[in-house]
Design a protein around this nucleic acid. Structure first.
Lengths: 252, 252
DNA sequence: CGGTTAATTGACCCACTTCAAGCGCGGTGG
DNA sequence: CCACCGCGCTTGAAGTGGGTCAATTAACCG
């Protein structure tokens, strides 16, 4: 399942991570170098297998370099709920640094290349660079803020609006990560089953919701890439307000 | 709205906070004293007013000493979604330390007594006590883990099970905080409107869901206190698994 | 060209919503 | 002291969003 690869500090995921931090605070080149140096190795994870598994005590955190991943939890009576979608530049399990034990799994939606950061190194890094430590903390809290929005969307929005909100969120995050291409499209390699698990609806209803949102328009999605043609329309449909992504430079 | 009070380090909320930390890792007396010394003042917040408000940049974090509070977000079309319930011993807005700007509000459900911790002091504290800093980080991530469970419950459970899950969660948290009394009851001073906002259902349905769960049995709730008579039954109903609360002593 | 996985659609059912009304209780003013 | 009011709780009836079961089509793969 896991192949070890050479470390390449010019990889897409590293650039996205740094871009994400610099969208929120000043990050010196020295801090950036110190952070990237904490990576011990690259690995490949095959589509369908787990980056980290529920119940285990982990000793490393994982930065997604290439590919798509998701956090998910199975509930005993059969269903699966996806609680987060991850794109390159996301630290998919940074919260395991203070938490240690995984209370859910992270799975690879596509073949993934990931960068591994040992907790021991990150811990030392945080003690030597308090500001960098606060930035890592911040990343985990932005993650939490996104989850809060998922609660709000699931609780108070219809499925069509909820789907529009998800698209708006992914587009906003992809833009920060520098993943938007010239045709205004972002990677979104999901099946409708996975989409249904993320929205918390049945597969049948996910399909119908998608059909309904396509009727609203403003985007195209082929299961691989999401292309935005009318962002304002999607924002209006979703009542999307990006403050929760904390996209402003503040001294943290 | 806000009255300044004398600081009392023997208050219920402080004891609950320390108990919560010691349930998850070793906390030396020196660390405990350093943490409590970071509190600059006590305040009163009246029922119905906000501890902190969405959109503002805050410079202090707030520990709930007495009373009940909730995080909530309004969605433009009228509804309100509660995303967390807070009891004494909870740091209701600790995540504002790295985040600065509030992306939602925290409201007082009852009259509350709170302890104020200036960010400047917490920041210095974290730099001088890296272990304490990781413990605070951990607290914010346990908060996030609870939110993840809310997503799972809302997405994959029916309303009756979701309510049972909420009761299980609150009871488990109250036990850690030392808030369970001799009759096995915990404070839960909510109206059914607030319960509905937390579950993400209509008021009418919250009422019917409560009726249905009462038929299952195992608890009593009068809108002020929740008394548990058959925890196993509630756990079974909710398919409750407390791992996500991270109630094990591990070196963080 | 068969086998498998993903997308799509129809039919029917149930969970939950909305609208509406009634009840119980504490608080207030006459 | 009582009449009234407002809030929270409760219930009924009818509508709808989303679930389940089931079948068909489309795309991919060996």
């Amino acid at each position: 399942m896991l192949d070890t690869l050479d470390i390449d500090h010019n990889s897409r995921g590293f650039a996205s991570l740094v871009a994400g931090l610099r969208a929120r605070d000043v990050l010196s080149d020295a801090e950036r170098d110190a952070l990237l140096a904490a990576c011990s190795e690259f690995r490949h994870v095959r589509k369908g297998s787990d980056l980290t598994s529920e119940g285990s005590i982990v000793t490393v955190s994982t930065l997604l370099i290439d590919g798509f991943a998701c956090r998910y939890t199975y509930v005993p009576d059969g269903g699966r709920q996806i609680t987060a979608l991850h794109m390159p530049g996301d630290f998919v399990d940074l919260y395991s640094l203070p938490l240690k034990r995984m209370d859910h799994s992270v799975g690879a939606i596509t073949d993934c290349r990931v960068a591994v950061f040992p907790h021991a190194v990150l811990k030392r890094l945080g003690e030597q660079h308090p500001h960098l430590n606060r930035l890592l903390w911040m990343l985990t809290l932005i993650d939490a803020a996104i989850q809060r929005q998922w609660i709000v969307a699931k609780g108070r929005l219809g499925a069509r609006q909820q789907l529009a909100h998800l698209f708006c969120e992914l587009y906003a995050r992809a833009r920060v990560a520098g993943l938007v291409d010239a045709r205004n499209s972002i990677p979104l390699p999901l099946t409708q089953v996975q989409l249904a698990d993320a929205l918390g609806v049945s597969i049948v209803h996910a399909n119908r919701t998608l059909k309904a949102l396509r009727a609203v328009g403003g985007f195209e999605w082929d299961g691989i890439r999401l292309t935005i043609s009318d962002l304002a329309r999607l924002h209006a449909e979703a009542q999307f307000d990006p403050v929760y992504l904390h996209l402003e430079q503040l001294p943290r």
